[in-house]
């Protein structure tokens, strides 16, 4: 807690104001007033309003104490009155008399006086030369552009931002709504059963030779891309002749499973004879397929 914070609180309470009232008069948030009363120095831009609201001077706020009721200039003549025991006008005339006396004792020509004045002014110019340098530095600052949006200097959104955000936001909501509606329609019109027309979307049938050399066995696999119930599949697998004979080797296999989760794999191996008789690349034909989808 500083002297300033105590002073602000005391003055506010003395005027019978609440923190909210002071904040309203000063044009700040209540939180700012609380910060002032808990030790933070008021910002210079609020100082004048605060001084006005508390009916004190800005220097009093910064010092954290009231200025004595009489200023030095007010006090000086009274002291003279007390010390001399004369009226103020009389005291002034006495001083004038003293000055005239001093002048008569030290006579000075007008030329000498002018030279002295010039010297003094030259000294002053030299003494305060840094001030003119400072002024030059200040000129280097860029002026605030005329088209500057003042609403940027407070929290919230500018008019341009609001327009842009409403347009872009509305466009985004439109895209999302189209996406959501199309997803909903697709969900409602989804396939309920597995059939010859759609089985490729839900199952993947593949054949892989078993072993690397002298292959005579091929593995047929069925991989599920979705959950299928009461699955039933019949395939005709044929192998073309490789070196001898003209006849193809054909066999029929079937898969049947009650509940097949997504990612499950069913497999069956087919051995077609000697490795040199048929090509290990199987030709697969789906005869029938059935099952229920979620």
């Amino acid at each position: 807690m500083s002297k300033t914070s105590d002073f602000i609180r005391e003055k506010r309470e003395a005027l019978g104001m609440s923190q909210e009232e002071l904040a309203e008069k000063t044009g700040v948030f209540v939180s700012e007033v609380r910060l002032w009363e808990s030790g933070m120095l008021p910002d210079s831009k609020h100082l004048l309003q605060l001084a006005e609201a508390l009916q004190v001077g800005t220097d009093e706020i910064l010092r954290g104490e009231e200025e004595p009721s009489e200023s030095v200039s007010e006090r000086l003549p009274r002291q003279e009155i007390v010390s001399d025991g004369h009226e103020p006008e009389q005291a002034l005339s006495d001083r004038q008399e003293n000055l005239v006396k001093e002048e008569s004792e030290n006579p000075q020509t007008e030329q000498e006086a002018a030279q002295e004045d010039e010297k003094e002014s030259a000294d002053e110019t030299e003494k305060y030369s840094f001030l003119s340098e400072q002024e030059e530095d200040e000129d280097d600052f860029e002026p605030i552009p005329e088209d500057f949006d003042e609403s940027l200097r407070r929290n919230g959104f500018t008019k341009k931002e609001r327009v842009l955000a409403y347009v872009a936001g509305a466009l985004f909501i439109l895209i999302v709504l189209v996406n959501l509606i199309s997803s909903g329609v697709a969900y409602l019109n989804r396939d309920r059963t597995l059939a010859m027309e759609n089985y490729k979307n839900y199952i993947e049938i593949d054949s892989d030779p078993v072993g690397n050399v002298n292959v005579d066995t091929v593995e047929i696999t069925v991989k599920f891309k979705a959950h299928v119930t009461d699955f039933d599949l019949t395939l005709t697998v044929s192998f073309s002749p490789m070196l001898v004979g003209n006849e193809t080797y054909t066999t029929e296999i079937s898969f049947s499973q009650r509940d097949c989760q997504k990612g499950k794999v069913l497999s069956r191996q087919i051995t077609y004879g000697e490795y040199y008789e048929y090509s290990p690349f199987a030709h697969i034909q789906v005869n029938s397929v059935s099952g229920g989808l979620d």
């Binding site: 919230g156 959104f157 609001r162 955000a165 409403y166 985004f172 909501i173 999302v176 996406n179 959501l180």
Partner: peptide, 15 residues
């Protein structure tokens, strides 16, 4: 404006 931006983000999350 803040409410609108929150609604836009909620739509994004729903998507």
């Amino acid at each position: 404006m803040v409410l609108f931006l929150c609604v836009v983000l909620a739509f994004g999350l729903a998507n």
